[in-house]
C-alpha cells in the first residue's frame, strides 16, 4: 500500500534575473537559507529553505533567473504544489516573465504573481494582468522583499489556493 504525504508542500519561486528571488525566500523564511546556489550574486543553481506556515512544512525553492540556467526550471518544478512568479517592478513585464507564465501553467498548479521592489516602483496589478493575459482568479500582489512587505500574506493566500484545489 502506498502512503500520500499531506503535511508538506513544495513551492517554487520563479522570476527573471534580478527580480529578487533569493532575497524573497530569505526574508520570507527569516533564516539563513539551507542552500544558496549563487556565484557572484547570480543564482546559478537554486535556493532552498524550509519554513512552517499554516501547519505545513513548506519546501521553498527559488529558481535561477538567468536564461542560461533555465534548464533547471523543469527539475525544480517537478512535484511542485504551487508557484510564485516574481516580477521586477522597476523593469516591468519582460519576455522571460511571459515565458515563465507559460511554463508554470503547464503544471496546472495554483500560482500567484508578486510584483517585487514595490519600495522603488509600484506596478499596477491590473497592468500586469493585462500584459500577461491573466484571468481574474490569479492573485497579483505588490511586495518588497527587501522590506519584508506583504510576503507572508501572499504565501498564505497561495496556500489557501492550494488547499482549495486539493479539497476539490
Amino acid at each position: 500500500m502506498e502512503q500520500i504525504s499531506k503535511d508538506s508542500l513544495k513551492i517554487v519561486v520563479f522570476g527573471a534575473l534580478n527580480a529578487g528571488k533569493t532575497t524573497f525566500v530569505e526574508r520570507l523564511s527569516g533564516q539563513e537559507l539551507f542552500l544558496k546556489g549563487e556565484y557572484e550574486s547570480i543564482t546559478t543553481s537554486f535556493d532552498f529553505v524550509q519554513i512552517k506556515q499554516q501547519d505545513y512544512l513548506i519546501h521553498l525553492f527559488a529558481s535561477p533567473g538567468h536564461r542560461r540556467f533555465s534548464f533547471m526550471w523543469e527539475t525544480l518544478a517537478t512535484g511542485m504544489d504551487g508557484a510564485i512568479l516574481l516580477l521586477d517592478s522597476t523593469v516591468g513585464v519582460t519576455p522571460v516573465d511571459h515565458e515563465l507564465i507559460d511554463f508554470i501553467e503547464q503544471y496546472g498548479v495554483p500560482y500567484i504573481i508578486a510584483a517585487n521592489k514595490d519600495d522603488i516602483f509600484k506596478m499596477d496589478p491590473e497592468f500586469i494582468r493585462k500584459e500577461l493575459k491573466l484571468s481574474d482568479n490569479i492573485l497579483i500582489g505588490n511586495t518588497s522583499a527587501l522590506n519584508d512587505d506583504n510576503l507572508d500574506n501572499l504565501l498564505d493566500k497561495l496556500i489557501d489556493d492550494i488547499n482549495k484545489r486539493n479539497n476539490k
Binding site: 539551507f34 542552500l35 537554486f46 532552498f48 525553492f61 534548464f71 533547471m72 527539475t75 525544480l76 517537478t78
Partner: peptide, 14 residues
C-alpha cells in the same frame, strides 16, 4: 536529508 535530496535531484537534472 532535505538538503541532500534537493541538491541531488538538482544535480541529476543538470
Amino acid at each position: 536529508s532535505s538538503v541532500l535530496s534537493a541538491s541531488t535531484v538538482a544535480a541529476l537534472g543538470a
